[in-house]
Each structure stands twice: as structure tokens, then as C-alpha cells.
Nucleic acid binder design. Structure first.
Lengths: 361, 361
DNA sequence: AGCGTCCGCGCAACCGATTGCACAAGCCAC
DNA sequence: GTGGCTTGTGCAATCGGTTGCGCGGACGCT
């Protein structure tokens, strides 16, 4: 237990106790082969005895490497971002990097401040997950070989750019939505609708991907239902709009929204999935446990976080990041999108109020 | 866009451009009143023009303050921990602190390494959420006025210690479980069972709190059902055990487990809540959206994170942390615990659970 | 014995900011 | 004109490690 009066143990103390110079002590502690084995042992022992803890600030000041990685994301409490963060932290820790995490909350000003913090602390690498700022602004502040974009909302950073961008990592969301649409079409759904928050820019991409798929099947253009920004909490407005004019199936921006809708639609006369099928996106755990089980798309969120670290730390000798990557996604069919023609008996699964009757067959 | 050839801009460059010394430039940038207004403006302009970004390592080396806070938790992808992290990050950012987040994953060795990282980076404060290490070991490494324990699993750090501990922050879980038991008793449930992972140490506390409450109502001792460590993913084993000999109601360690059980019990002949009622704990979003809606206890997780920051930064002039705090929780009655008999019991929906603040008895 | 190597280690500069202290003006009063 | 003050700046030490370079001694070889 360190008393206020005791000064912090510094390298000089270790060196003194070990009977060497600071230089030797420093090298010994990092197992420099130029230092003899006995000396190394002596320094080790001294450090241990004194409870020496090197000062990272001093070290990185001289070494020009901080072993710090910065991660910027929207919301830590969001399951998807939480998984990205978990994968990121795990991979970083495994490689001996500490992780700065800051949240942007869709606020450009907060993002700017977060970036400033990363830069002041001289993070060795920065990962921007779903940032709302302009990548050009970002690149004006951060060297291109030090920043990786994960799930960028910017079409410009996606495919088709010339030259192929580096340092961009994302999951194949368009393919996921295409798979969802295909699944629905194969199951006999025709009038599809997309529900999303609108303002989030990745929403436009997902919606467009679904719309493209719908068009490719020759179906009528997909209806768009605005869930609003807080549709994740209160989806009742969207639920009423759906009740008024129910489509055959709903394609949701993400699982969080789908689950909120599932909940809100209980208050309507609609039976789910009997009257309206519903599909989500992300593959978060509650989606797999909901009732009915949600048809959704598993996104490798943890893997995204992990790969982001690997990309950052894999700059080749040309000092450039590996080229961009797209991680595959996987459609998971649940009970929320049953074959449409097969429905003959009334669905019980989607009933609104739990039964309080006695035992029933 | 910074080219590799351009050297990083340092304070000396700013000073040169502004025509002052480094000392003056440094003071000007932090609005030292001793520096004349024109000089301050000149330095400001020079810094802006050069795109100067101060080096946090150099600054904190000399200033002996890093403006870094460390947060150690079990799993970032866990909803509860995610909310704690979110509150923590938000409060820290608002006060100009950067946040190191590391995960322990219930592994003492990882926790040790995380603590080492915090210490090497000289974090101004450290928050340990649900760490599995011995607090004594922690205090041997970290000054007592620099670390806050959130939701400690250690009875020794809870109430009753003498002198009252400082730097301990938790929610009133015992009161929450007591409220759940009371609710179940009032609704006519008699044979209660507790389901938990067993090995997690906070499990013992929760179980004990529930058991105490059960005893206080003169009911038979509560049965214990082991969910296993990965009961959050696969609760089928526990579900089979429940089906074999169903209690009246299940009190679960947390919502995650309750939801998994809810899901697993669908594969049994039991109807929920008709045959067996079920209650969770934590108040995570999916619990409020599940079907049936889960009776649970809202825990102020975000607030825990926020308060942790405030406690860390509120050390008085005696250099000591504020005394420990217990945040109140709130029972939320859902559909998973309907009245069991015809006799109607008083509704206590949304009633706040009486809770004590501070460590004073 | 003489000479070239190699090994192990220390000197001192350096990373980039902060800060105690001193000093130079400018101003007033005597 | 000189002393006492205030005001605005600069010098240089300092924080705690890292690292280029050089030096002394042990060792091998002729």
C-alpha cells in the first residue's frame, strides 16, 4: 500500500538497487540480448522487489509509440457496437495494446473531440465505427495509415472507388438484405415494406440494398415506413401506420427495431407473423430468443472488431494498410417469416395476451 | 494530410511562429491570465495555422496528471456492463477525461494485466466493475483514493464493515431480490426456486438475499437450480430440471438468464407463466419486450457508471474518496408473474424499493 | 607478447511539454 | 533621478524513460 509520502518508484531506483546504470536496467527489463543473463536477473529482481511500474508516458514520449489504440463508436450500450468493442478490446489486449473508447452519439462535435483526444494521446491506431463525420475531414487530421473505418456509412468508401480504398472494413450488409428479400419472395411474400430510422446514414444503404433486390424480382417498389429516431424504444407510431395498411412483410433496419416493432404490434389487431411477417438484421441474441424467433441476418460484429485491430497493426513495409475487406453475413431463418401459402390454421404463436386459463390441450 | 516527411508540429514550432518562447506559448494556450491578450491571440493563431496538437504524454509526464480514467469490466458485449460503460464514458468525456476500457472476462490473470496497463499509463482513476480479484490485492497495487469498486462481489466491501468503506458503489440488489420475493409471495406463489450460474460470486449474494426474504415470509427454504456458466446461451439443461419437478416460480440471477430460460422452456410441456412464473433481474431492454413481459428489477446501470466517475473525481482535500453509495433499484412487474390465485393482491407496480444511502447503518 | 574481436555496459542526449524563479520594462510616487 | 510595484516573458530545470555511440576488459589466435 503506497503512502502519499513515499515517492513513486522510478527506473533509477531499480538501477541503483541492481547496481547498474539506468540504461542497462531499461534494456534488461525488456530482455535485450546484449545484457548478460546475471545482470538481467538482478534488474528483474530489483524491479520486482521495489514494485516498479514503468511510466508509459515517459516511455512513449521517447519511443514514439504509445501502444494505445482508439475506438470511436456511437453507443456503448448498443448490442452491436458492444460486440464490436468487445472484439476490438480482446484483440488489442492480446497484442499488448490498451484501448481508448469514446462514443460519438451521432454528434459531429463529440466525434471531433474524440478524435482530438486520440491524437493528443498519440494513439498508434484509430478505428472509426459508424462515424458521422466526413472521412475527408478525418483524413485531413489523421494519417491515412493510422485509421480504419468500420462499417462506414459513406458510399464513397465502399466498393467501386478507384483506387480501391484501404483501411475500410465492413460486413456485407447489402448481401444480407438481398438474402432477406430473396427469402421472403421465395416464401410467397409480395408487398414488402422497409422500416428504418431514416436519418442514420447507413439506413439509406440498407434500404437501397433491399430496394434493389426487390426490383430484381420484379416486385412493386418497396414501401418505406419511418420508424423515427427513437423507434428502438417506442415503435408504437410505426405500428399504427402498419396496422392501417399492413404490408405482407416488414424488413427492418436492425433487430433492435424489429423487436421493438414486434412488441408494439402486440397492441394492434395484427397477428405476427400470421398477418404480417417481419425480418430483422444483426443477429443479436434477443432476436434469437424472441417469440416468434426473428428471421434475421447474423453479422460478425465481434469479428469486425477483431479484424479492425489486425488491419491497423498489419501495415506493411510500405507503411500502408491492408486493402479493404468485406466480411460475409448469414441469413438465419426464424419463425417470424413462415411460408406464406402454407398458413391454413390460425396462428397461435403471435397471440397478444398470455393465457390465464387452466390447463389446455 | 500529413506526409511522412513532415515532422510532427511541436510547441517550439508554435512559439517560433508566434515570436515567443515555449513557456509563453504553453501558458497562452491554456489562457494563463499572466499572458497579455495580444500575445495569447498570436499564439492561438499560430497553433491553429500549424495544426498543433499537444502531446498528452509529454504533458502528463511533467504535470503528473494524465486525464485518463480506467474502467475494468467483465464483458463489453454484456448489456448491463455495456450500460455501465456508456454512463462511465459519457461522464468522463463531459469532464475532459479519456477512458481506457479493458475486459477481465472473469479471468484473474487478465484482470491483473488490465490493472498493470492502467498503472503504467498512470490513470488518474480506476473503476473496477465486478472484478474477481481480491480487493486486498488490488489495494496493494493501487492507492485507495484512486480506485472505485462498482458492484463488488465481496461481502467485505459491502455494508457492515468498520470503518465504513469508501469508494464502493453498488445498486441495492438485495432489496431488489427482496422485492421480487415479496411480489411473488403476495401473488400467491409458495414454492420458489432460484436459478443462477453458481460460480459467479455475485450469484451467492443475490441468492442469499432472495433466500433471506423467503425465510422472512416463513416459506420453505428456496430450492436452488444450477444454470451453469453458459446458461445464458443454453439453458436447456436447467429447463429439463425444471420440467421434471416444477416449482411455482423461478427467481433468476439476471434477465439474460431469465430470457434464455423462457426460450428453453418453450421446448418443455410447461406453460410460462401458467405453470411456472419467472422473474429476472437488471431491467435490460429485451426483458421489457419479451413475451411474456418479464417481471424484473430495473437497475440504474448507466447511473452507476456516471456516479463512479463522479466519485473518482470528488476526492476531498483530505484526498479521500466520498463514502460508499448504494443506488436504489425498482421492481417492474411484467406478465411473467401473474396473480396465482383468485385472491387479488395489492399492486406494487413501479414502487420504489426503500434503500439506504451511504454506508451508515 | 601482441593484436583484433566481441561482449557487456554506461554516458549523455533526447522525446515534448510544464513551471519555479528571475528579470526587463513601464508606471507611479517621492 | 531613484526606489517600489505591477505586468509580461523567458531561462532552464524537470518529468521518466529510451537509445546512439563509445569504451574497457576478456578472450582467441598467431
Amino acid at each position: 500500500m503506497r503512502r502519499p509520502s513515499e515517492r513513486r518508484v522510478v527506473l533509477a531506483d531499480v538501477a541503483r538497487l541492481a547496481g547498474t546504470s539506468e540504461a542497462t536496467a531499461s534494456r534488461a527489463l525488456k530482455d535485450d540480448p546484449r545484457i548478460g543473463v546475471p545482470t538481467r536477473a538482478a534488474v528483474r529482481a530489483a524491479a520486482l522487489k521495489l514494485g516498479y511500474v514503468p511510466n508509459a508516458a515517459a516511455r512513449s514520449l521517447r519511443a514514439r509509440r504509445t501502444h494505445i489504440l482508439g475506438l470511436l463508436l456511437d453507443e456503448l450500450s448498443d448490442p452491436v457496437h458492444g460486440k464490436v468493442a468487445a472484439g476490438f478490446e480482446e484483440a488489442a489486449a492480446a497484442r499488448g495494446y490498451a484501448v481508448f473508447i469514446m462514443t460519438g452519439l451521432h454528434d459531429p462535435e463529440r466525434e471531433r473531440r474524440a478524435l482530438t483526444a486520440f491524437l493528443e494521446h498519440r494513439a498508434d491506431g484509430i478505428v472509426l465505427a459508424s462515424c458521422v463525420s466526413d472521412p475527408a475531414d478525418v483524413h485531413a487530421r489523421v494519417a491515412a495509415d493510422r485509421v480504419v473505418f468500420v462499417q462506414p456509412d459513406y458510399p464513397a468508401l465502399a466498393d467501386g472507388a478507384e483506387p480501391p480504398p484501404r483501411g475500410v472494413l465492413r460486413s456485407d450488409d447489402p448481401a444480407g438484405f438481398a438474402a432477406t428479400v430473396r427469402h421472403l419472395v421465395e416464401r410467397g411474400y409480395e408487398r414488402l415494406a422497409y422500416v428504418g430510422p431514416g436519418v442514420v446514414s447507413s439506413d439509406a444503404l440498407r434500404r437501397a440494398a433491399a430496394a434493389d433486390a426487390v426490383a430484381s424480382y420484379g416486385l412493386a417498389p418497396m414501401r418505406y415506413i419511418d420508424s423515427g429516431l427513437d423507434g428502438w424504444r417506442d415503435a408504437s407510431t410505426a405500428a399504427r401506420a402498419i396496422e392501417e395498411d399492413p404490408p405482407d412483410a416488414l424488413i427492418c433496419y436492425d433487430d433492435k427495431l424489429a423487436l421493438a416493432l414486434l412488441d408494439a404490434l402486440r397492441a394492434t389487431s395484427l397477428r405476427i407473423p400470421g398477418d404480417v411477417a417481419i425480418a430483422g438484421f444483426d443477429g443479436i441474441l434477443p432476436a434469437h430468443q424472441s417469440r416468434p424467433r426473428l428471421t434475421t441476418v447474423d453479422v460478425p460484429s465481434v469479428e469486425l472488431g477483431r479484424r479492425a485491430v489486425e488491419m491497423l497493426l498489419a501495415t506493411g513495409r510500405d507503411g500502408r494498410l491492408p486493402s479493404s475487406e468485406v466480411l460475409p453475413v448469414r441469413l438465419v431463418v426464424g419463425e417470424s417469416t413462415p411460408p406464406r401459402r402454407a398458413r391454413s390454421a390460425p396462428e397461435i404463436v403471435g397471440q397478444a395476451v398470455p393465457s390465464r386459463r387452466g390447463a389446455s390441450a
